[in-house]
């Protein structure tokens, strides 16, 4: 086996197929997207080269920056909710009764398709017949919020199902990391007189910080390119109040047939995601060094 793995051609044999696929399905389309951004193209007819016009328009486009801000907000919320997931996971990982059942309960939303979740939450948010407002009305609240219909709160309302949707995913990962924390360390800390909170904060969390960092990046990048629930539930509305970068890109490319401008937005999204990932990695590294 050792012999085989040191043979360069064999290594190439294992690496190349995947490399080809990634190249053809991801990197080349990525470059093409940037290239289409230089075109005026309705997606069907002839392409026309217009230089950097789309990118200049993009930088000046108020709507694009608004939707970028919404995406960033979603990223912040997702990262904040990681703290909640961490607490839940800590509780689940400590040996309490029923932890097993709760673990399963948390994972279930992940098994539902996005469209099903969207339909479910549309019904929950319905201003008149919905679960929340029926409850509010029954306890005597008169001016019930309109949730998805109110431009002021629609964005935050839609964050709830998005965060809820991925809760199980994050909890399972954190839980798995916590279970791998060596029992001896916890034992030792306990003998030294640490209480449960200290054990969690001083021992468990630092030990899984690698996993947490990955999750932060996942949460932020996932939020920046987030699309599905927003598309199904509000379509970016009312009046762009819940527009995010991906939904804006979709509207331009597939709604208005501006494939050129849509590609420019897509490329902008890519650049922003890369900058965000890079920044986060830098930030977290300095923390570690200190």
């Amino acid at each position: 086996m050792k012999n085989v793995m040191s043979n360069k051609t064999v290594i190439a044999l294992y690496v190349l197929p995947a490399l080809f696929l990634v190249l053809f399905l991801i990197y080349i389309p990525m470059i093409l997207t940037g290239y289409y951004g230089l075109m005026k193209w309705d997606g069907v007819g002839e392409m026309k080269f217009i230089g950097l016009d789309n990118y200049i328009k993009l930088v000046q486009d108020k709507l694009f920056w608004e939707s970028t801000w919404h995406s960033i907000l979603l990223g912040l919320f997702s990262v904040l909710s990681l703290i909640g997931y961490l607490i839940v996971s800590l509780v689940l990982a400590s040996k309490i009764k029923g932890a097993n059942i709760f673990r399963k309960i948390y994972i279930i939303p992940m098994l539902l398709s996005s469209v099903a979740i969207a339909q479910l939450w549309i019904k929950i948010f319905d201003p008149m017949n919905g679960l929340i407002n029926s409850f509010l009305t029954s306890i005597g609240v008169e001016n019930v919020p309109l949730w998805l219909a109110d431009p002021e709160i629609a964005l935050y309302a839609i964050f709830i199902p998005i965060v809820w949707q991925y809760a199980g995913f994050y909890i399972i990962i954190i839980y798995a990391a916590l279970v791998n924390v060596p029992e001896e360390l916890i034992e030792a800390a306990r003998i030294d007189g640490a209480n449960a909170f200290q054990i969690a904060y001083k021992i468990k969390v630092p030990l899984i910080s690698g996993v947490l960092k990955v999750l932060v990046i996942l949460a932020i990048v996932g939020s920046l390119k987030y699309f599905d629930l927003i598309y199904v539930m509000t379509g970016g509305g009312p009046g762009h109040a819940t527009e995010v970068m991906a939904s804006y890109m979709y509207k331009e490319a597939f709604g208005k047939y501006n494939f050129g401008y849509g590609s420019a937005i897509g490329f902008g999204l890519l650049v922003i995601s890369m900058v965000a990932t890079w920044t986060i990695q830098k930030l977290m590294k300095t923390k570690e060094d200190n």
Binding site: I122, P127, L146, W147, L148, A149, A154, G237, P238, G239
Partner: peptide, 12 residues
Amino acid sequence: FVKGNTAFSNDD
């Protein structure tokens, strides 16, 4: 019009 109609699709 029905309240919250900016969140309603035609089917809703």
